[in-house]
Simulated scan of single mutants.
Amino acid sequence: MENVQYAEELVREFLVFRGFTNTLQAYEAELSTEIGRNFEVDKILDLVFSVYIPKYQLDRLLSIFSFLKQCFTSPADTVLYTALLKLEQSVLRYYVVNALKSGRQEKVIEFFSVGGSHLMQKREDWIAWFAIPYIKNPSLDPQFRMYFSKEWSDTLVLSFRNFLSGIFNGTRIPALMKISTEKNMIKCLKSDIKQLNNKLSELQALLEVKEVELSLLRRNDHSINSGHKNLLKITTAGSSVGGQAFSGVYEESSTSSTTVQGVNSQTLSSAKSRAEKLCDSSRMSNAGK
């Protein structure tokens, strides 16, 4: 709806700028009838069955069908054009029936006096309808009884709805309407770009903080690795010195052990010699005895 109003303002502005005052007046008059109702089916149905027919606005009722014929159908499209003509005939008959139900026979007479010649030229099956204003109880007449039933009127509204939905489905949007749509789209895109720029700034600031933290972590890791290497060197050097000292101690210990073994051997030999001497001395003593 906002797009439609914006487009209408653009048309008014252009007509005033070019000085098309007569066209502007005709344009304002057309807007007051609201033919088409922005291609909204429910609004068009409400316009026909709740405004034009109950208020006996026959000229506007005919104009809306003229609008549909010019904008959405052509005699070349026989199926669609024939369907619209039959729908128009049913709506006009509903107009007559509604006037009779309301006791407005003069509106029915006026209807045939205004468009009778046109109806006779286009539809021969209208001939019997010229007598309906003078029938006492047309709702009981076998020829017209069907048109006074609620089932027929409900079917007519449903058929009209389906027809409008069919012709409006996929209708190309006028270029003038796209101006407002594109304007709103550009506005939304600018807003999105602004939000994305703010988000980008926040992410860049966060990235800088993370880079600083990462740099500090790398420095700490480097310091720890250097400390480990120095400690390893010290440990290795200490192990070498300790090994040499242990080797010296081992050699000294080995020498001492050899010396001790030599002393023990001499002592043992001396002990043996003394024992042998005692044995010899004992033998000699026994022999003397």
Rank of each mutant, 00 (worst) to 15 (best):
L231S: 05
R274G: 10
G115I: 01
L278S: 10
Y81H: 08
K43M: 07
L214D: 15
W126D: 02
K210L: 15
Q105I: 07
V108F: 02
S215N: 14
V260E: 14
V79A: 14
N197D: 03
A205I: 04
E182Y: 00
S50A: 13
S66N: 13
S240V: 11
D59Y: 09
S253N: 15
I132F: 03
G170N: 04
L61S: 00
L119C: 01
T255D: 01
S159D: 11
L216A: 15
E88I: 06
F112W: 08
S269V: 11
I179Y: 02
N225D: 15
S257T: 13
L58S: 07
L62E: 09
D59T: 06
K122G: 04
F163L: 02
F160W: 00
C71Y: 11
E40G: 02
N264L: 14
W152N: 06
S223T: 09
I173T: 13
Q204F: 03
L61K: 00
L156D: 08
R12Q: 07
S74R: 09
E202L: 12
L45F: 01
R93H: 10
V209G: 01
Y56F: 05
N22Q: 02
E8K: 00
H118F: 08
M177V: 09
F163P: 07
F148D: 11
K229A: 13
I127G: 03
S282L: 15
T236I: 02
E2C: 01
Q105F: 01
M146H: 04
S226W: 00
V51Y: 00
H228P: 02
S191N: 06
S63H: 06
I64W: 01
I135M: 09
I64V: 07
M185A: 12
Q5V: 07
V97S: 03
D42P: 06
L207M: 15
V108I: 04
V4R: 06
Q244A: 12
V41H: 06
S117R: 12
T181C: 05
L100E: 01
A99S: 14
Y95A: 00
A99V: 08
Q143F: 11
L85K: 00
T181W: 04
G170L: 05
S153L: 10
